[in-house]
Design a protein around this nucleic acid. Structure first.
Lengths: 229, 229
DNA sequence: CGTGTCAACGGTACTCAGTCTCACACGGCC
DNA sequence: GGCCGTGTGAGACTGAGTACCGTTGACACG
């Protein structure tokens, strides 16, 4: 037997779901194929559906920490990179992600579970954006939509854009999903940006794989420097 | 016994879910309280969760017919009224909608079912918007986001705005939810409307995988140089 | 070396959602 | 009367998910 118990269960589940279909596969089948007891399956994965999904808790925590490091001026950067964290995870999964895609398209129960998972990402982004809008005054006090709704709307867009790009890659239609996501998110952030725009505005999205704090001073300096004549 | 079998089952289900909790209520309990057999329950409602939700199929069909009557110029009007159809349905439910709200906030299984229901509305709006965008040329051919994604984004916003207004009313915070929905949707449609004239704005997406210094020239150029007219 | 502890696992019994089948009652309809 | 479609109740059955118990094995500590 290779791999941990958890890995063997995941492999067995994916294999059986694809071979004989989700409905015709029992948890007993999966456990037997992985060489463990049925109880062990339910100890590791709470349900028959959870086996095929990534560990959302881990992913959400990574997003939260990335967003928590955002300062007043770097909200958009943090959002883009947080979304990129999730995308990168799926890209790294490769065939596993593709197999999951085939299943979620076919089995309603799995599609619903995926929806429930996505909602948690919306909430995390939404909560961040709500406080960010409030702190930075991005949304005026007398705004028609209000801070709460504007945060929800943008959070929806972020998640939807991510899923759109991801699906494109899963279908093999996208060569460079990472830049596609960044481009899309830049356009979306521009769409949601405050619109007293008579001034020429610039939305700059950077990828700071290294320490963000170390980049910020240089970035500020670069922006505030007089242009070379 | 008053009302049809279906109505009695709904009443019994709501009552028992609130009295003793969703998990501690069995379908047998509901059927017994309504004075019918267990099989009858599953004939009318497919599952234990479906009892408390409105008939989405009917509602979706109403939306589809309303959207189908839209001409090239009346897209936004159709969208607003289609959303209003749904809102009006919930408003007419009154206390029933409020009871459902209490349950969906509390019980995860019901929250997930609600999410699955909402997705269908997103799809209906999304499909309409996609063809409407394509037919009217609302979205340019060389658009960064593309017709498909733009339709998804706007569909998300419509559903989210609806839910936002509805929740506000369910919590007793809103006096006039109908006009509030129309106001919000107007603002959202404006947000997603094609930008009239190309204002001097620069969206710059950079990858700073390497040294920041190597990127700075491009950054300065983007920030300070006037955009090509 | 013996012994306590703790975590992971297997096994089993139980509840209950959901499906299916069969039998029965009721109402038209010829 | 006989016939048929429909709605219903009853009961059997599968399988997910939970709870509990006993076992094993690793790892200390004496």
């Amino acid at each position: 037997m290779t791999g941990s118990t958890s890995e063997r269960l995941v492999e067995a589940a994916f294999a059986l779901y694809e071979e004989q279909g989700y409905d015709r596969t029992t948890v007993d089948d999966i456990a037997a194929r992985a060489g463990v007891g049925r109880a062990t399956f339910f100890r590791i994965f709470g349900s028959k559906e959870d086996v095929i999904f990534p560990d959302h808790d881990v992913l959400l925590e990574r997003i939260r920490t990335r967003l928590a490091h955002a300062t007043v001026g770097t909200g958009p950067v943090a959002v883009v990179e947080a979304a990129a964290v999730v995308l990168d995870h799926y890209l790294a999964e490769g065939d596993l992600a593709r197999a999951r895609y085939r299943l979620t398209r076919t089995v309603p129960a799995l599609r619903h579970r995926e929806l429930a998972g996505m909602q948690r990402y919306r909430q995390v982004f939404g909560e961040f954006l709500r406080s960010w809008f409030a702190e930075t005054g991005q949304v005026a006090d007398g705004d028609v939509l209000g801070v709460q709704l504007r945060a929800e709307l943008l959070a929806d867009s972020i998640v939807t854009a991510h899923n759109h790009v991801l699906r494109g890659w899963l279908r093999g239609e996208t060569a460079d999903p990472r830049t596609q996501l960044r481009t899309a998110l830049a356009a979306i952030l521009d769409l949601h940006a405050p619109r007293p725009a008579e001034e020429p505005a610039a939305v700059v999205v950077l990828r700071a794989d290294a320490d963000l704090a170390s980049v910020l001073p240089a970035l500020r300096a670069a922006v505030h420097e007089p242009p070379p004549r």
